[in-house]
Measured scan of single mutants.
Amino acid sequence: MQIFVKGLTGKTTTLEVEPSDTIENVKAKIQDKTGLPPDQQRLIFAGKQLEDGRTLSDYNIQKESTLHIVWR
C-alpha cells in the first residue's frame, strides 16, 4: 500500500509499505529516500508519536494515510 510522509518543509515523500511493517522498517525506507537516519526521525500520526516496535496496523494506518515527520 502507499502512504505519504510529510515533513516540516511541506515536502511529501511517498512510500510503498505493508500494514505489517514495523515503524522501524518504515524509518529505514524513509532513510533510503531522504538520507535522514532513523535515529533522527520522529513519526507522528493522529497526534501520536509512533514507536519503533509497533506496526502500521497497530496504529490503524491505512493506504494513503499521511504521517508527519519531525527531525530530532
Rank of each mutant, 00 (worst) to 15 (best):
F4S: 04
Q40T: 07
A46G: 11
T14G: 05
D52T: 06
Q2C: 07
D32Q: 14
V17G: 01
K11E: 14
E51S: 07
T22N: 04
Y59S: 02
P38T: 14
R54V: 05
Q49I: 15
N60Q: 10
T55Y: 05
Q49C: 10
I61K: 00
V70P: 02
F45H: 06
P37S: 10
A28H: 12
T12K: 09
K63W: 07
I69K: 01
S65K: 03
V5K: 01
V70S: 09
D39H: 12
Y59D: 01
L43D: 00
A46S: 09
I61Q: 01
F4T: 05
D52H: 06
S20P: 02
G7R: 06
E64A: 09
P37G: 06
T13V: 15
G47Q: 04
W71N: 09
K29C: 03
K63Q: 12
R54C: 07
K6G: 04
D52N: 11
I44Q: 06
I30M: 07
T13W: 15
Y59M: 03
R72E: 14
G35Q: 04
Q31A: 14
K29G: 03
G10I: 13
L56N: 00
Q41R: 03
L15F: 06
G47W: 05
K27S: 02
P19Q: 07
I44L: 11
T34C: 07
L36D: 03
R54T: 06
K6S: 08
K29S: 04
F4I: 06
T9A: 12
E51A: 08
Q31D: 03
K63V: 07
N60L: 06
D21P: 00
P19N: 05
K11L: 13
D39K: 11
A28W: 11
L50C: 03
K63H: 15
Q62V: 13
Y59N: 02
T22L: 11
V70C: 07
P19D: 06
G10F: 09
G10E: 07
I30W: 05
T14I: 14
T13L: 15
Q2W: 11
M1C: 03
I30H: 02
V17H: 01
D21Y: 07
D52L: 05
V17N: 00
L43N: 00
S57H: 08
P37K: 11
G35D: 04
E18K: 13
L36N: 04
L43C: 01
K6V: 15
T22H: 05
L67C: 01
K33N: 06
N25R: 15
E18G: 07
S20G: 11
K63Y: 06
L15R: 00
T22R: 07
G47N: 06
K33G: 04
I3R: 01
D58T: 04
P38C: 06
T55E: 03
Y59R: 00
S20W: 14
L15P: 00
K33R: 09
G35R: 05
T55V: 06
G7E: 11
V70F: 13
V5C: 03
N60W: 04
T12Y: 11
L8G: 08
Q62W: 07
P38Y: 11
K33Y: 09
Q41F: 15
L50V: 04
Q62R: 09
I69A: 04
R42A: 10
G10N: 08
Q62F: 09
Q31F: 15
Q2T: 15
R42M: 15
L50P: 01
Q31K: 11
R54L: 11
I61R: 00
N25V: 14
L36C: 07
T22E: 03
E24V: 06
K29R: 08
S57N: 10
H68I: 14
S20K: 08
M1Q: 03
F45Q: 02
K63S: 15
K63M: 10
N25W: 10
K48P: 01
L67P: 00
G53E: 11
I30S: 01
H68C: 09
I44C: 10
I23T: 04
P37N: 09
P19G: 07
E64M: 11
E64G: 15
E18F: 14
K27V: 02
V17K: 00
E16M: 12
P37Y: 07
P19T: 07
F45D: 01
L36Y: 11
Q49L: 15
I30V: 05
E24F: 13
H68Q: 11
K63E: 11
I23P: 02
N60A: 07
G35E: 03
P37T: 08
E51D: 08
P19L: 10
Q40P: 02
R54S: 07
G47E: 04
Q49N: 10
P38W: 13
P37R: 12
T22I: 05
K29W: 04
T22F: 08
T13K: 05
T34R: 03
K6W: 07
A28V: 10
L43A: 02
D32K: 14
K63R: 12
M1Y: 13
E16F: 13
F4K: 06
N25L: 13
D32M: 14
Q2F: 13
Q41D: 02
I69Y: 04
P19Y: 06
V26D: 00
F4Y: 13
G35Y: 03
V26M: 03
E24L: 14
Q62Y: 09
F45G: 02
E64H: 14
S65Q: 07
E18R: 14
Q31P: 02
I3A: 01
T14N: 06
Q41G: 05
H68Y: 14
K6Y: 08
L56R: 01
E24W: 15
L56G: 00
G7T: 13
K48V: 15
D52E: 10
K48I: 14
H68T: 12
S20I: 06
E24G: 11
F45P: 00
I61C: 01
I44N: 05
E16W: 15
I69Q: 04
P19K: 06
K11A: 10
E51F: 07
D32E: 14
I30A: 02
V70A: 09
L8K: 10
D32P: 03
V5I: 14
S65W: 03
L15I: 12
K27R: 06
S57E: 11
R42N: 11
P37F: 07
L36W: 15
Q2P: 07
E64L: 12
T34D: 03
V5E: 01
H68P: 01
D32V: 12
K29A: 06
R72D: 14
F4A: 03
E16T: 13
A28C: 07
I3Q: 01
D21T: 08
K48Y: 09
G47H: 05
D52S: 07
D32C: 08
D39L: 09
D58L: 03
E16R: 10
K11W: 15
G53V: 06
A28G: 09
T9K: 12
Q40I: 09
I69N: 06
D39N: 12
P19W: 06
Q40M: 12
K27P: 00
T9Y: 15
Q41A: 09
P19R: 07
T9N: 15
T34H: 07
I3D: 01
M1N: 02
Q40F: 11
T13Q: 10
K33W: 10
R54P: 04
P19E: 06
E24H: 12
K27L: 06
G35A: 04
E51W: 05
G47V: 02
G10L: 09
Q40K: 13
Q31S: 12
L50N: 00
T66C: 05
T9C: 12
T13G: 04
E24K: 11
I3H: 01
S20N: 14
K33L: 14
G7W: 15
Q62L: 10
D21F: 07
S20E: 10
L56S: 00
V26F: 02
E24S: 12
I23E: 00
G35C: 05
T9R: 12
Q41H: 08
R54D: 05
D58A: 06
L36A: 06
A28F: 13
E16S: 12
K63P: 15
